[in-house]
Simulated scan of single mutants.
Amino acid sequence: MFDFGKLVKVPTTIMRGGTSKGLILRKVDLPSDPQLRDHMILRLFGSPDSNQIDGLGGGTSLTSKLALVGPPSRSGAHIDYTFGQVSLEKNVIDYKVTCGNLITAVGLYAAEEGYVALTEPVTEVRIYNTNINKIIVAEIPVENGQIKYEGDFSIAGVPGVASKIMLNFLDSGGTFTGKTLPTGSPVDTVWLQDGRRFEISFVDCSNPVVFVRAHDVGAKGTELHQEINGNKELLDTLEQIRVQAGIKTGLIRPDEIVHPSTHALPKIAMVAAPADYITSSNQMVPAGDTDILSRYLAMGTLHKAHAVSGAMALAAACQIPGSIPNQLTTSSGSGVRVGHPSGILYVEAKVEQHKSSWSVERAACGRTARRLMDGYAYIPYSVLAAHDR
């Protein structure tokens, strides 16, 4: 952090990871006081403002993401990574969640910045994710002593092709609650205040996710953004289900005032059996090309594609007998092809049963990432002065 006259400039890297985009900030360049640090970061992003017009945020939940990085604080790791979801509407950065997409960017960043020595053909970057107290391994392709950027791997929701970066979430069951099935049951029932009840499956793998049948909430599971984001009644029902599931598992206190931007966990997704559907780019996806359909919500709106962590939870759920995803999927193995608004996401999970509990030894998927720019982000010096008063 540097004083630049009446402006403060902060070294900043902007990267895309998977279908997300965010700022990579080094902890050493920011104030040690967490409140002052977050005050600065919110100003860098241009929050609170739904358009983030006066900052570097992109005006959506997928482009308002933060990665705080630094030297490893845990043995066996190459880099520390703390994820923050920067609110558009409030002066809030949510650190109680993680983002699999942005982890891809952090893995590439660590390899580019020399946090790990490059080895061929794959350099394993061990990332300590402080949000979930887990190590994630990103496999960075290396050729002729250099990072291999070009490739033929593509992901739905991102134009073009690049080299594939595999993400391996190790021992990812019970990340936030301590149990892969937080309630101990593959199916539970939640009651809403208006008397309606819904069956859900609650699975905690990388992120805690509530799965509900699309049919049960009056949907098909093939909907795109306008159909869901424009349906206030559906969004309200899903939010109530999410909150009740959070209360049931202790992630939300019964007396809390809850909003998607203040309580990101648990996540929620509508799932359905495979069916033909048209993607947001007007491409036909035949039913036979997917194993299950999922419509995943982020900060109260439909995700433009699908969160990686949510897909890993879904892959784990598909292998747990009796769960709602297990009832709907056509997959009989560890790999699951998830049909989402932008296309198909392939994800794997290795799930094992131990008497009445379940563990997820490994959850993995392939992503791409790219450094977009390096430079300095500027904020008025008065922002710091105002905080000190």
Rank of each mutant, 00 (worst) to 15 (best):
F2I: 15
K9A: 06
P11S: 04
T19Q: 03
L23Q: 04
P31K: 09
D33K: 09
I41S: 05
R43Y: 15
S47W: 00
S50A: 14
S50I: 14
Q52W: 01
G55C: 01
T60P: 12
G70E: 08
P71R: 15
P71E: 15
P72G: 12
R74S: 08
H78Y: 09
G84L: 01
N91H: 14
V92Y: 13
D94V: 13
V106S: 11
V106W: 08
A111W: 05
V122W: 10
Y128D: 03
N129K: 13
E143I: 09
K148Y: 05
V158L: 08
G160D: 09
S163F: 11
I165E: 07
L167M: 04
N168T: 12
S172W: 04
F176M: 01
K179H: 10
T180W: 08
V187R: 02
V190K: 00
L192I: 07
E199S: 11
I200H: 04
C205A: 03
V217C: 04
G218A: 13
A219D: 14
K220Y: 15
L224C: 11
N231Q: 11
Q240D: 12
Q240L: 11
I241W: 00
Q244G: 14
I257C: 15
M270T: 12
P274W: 02
A275D: 07
I278P: 05
I278D: 06
I278Y: 06
A287F: 00
A287V: 02
G288A: 13
D289I: 09
L293K: 04
A298L: 15
H303Y: 07
H306I: 12
A313H: 08
A316D: 08
C318S: 05
Q319L: 10
I320S: 04
I324Q: 09
G335K: 15
S342C: 01
L345D: 00
E348H: 15
Q353Y: 01
S356L: 14
G375R: 07
I379L: 08
V383Y: 14
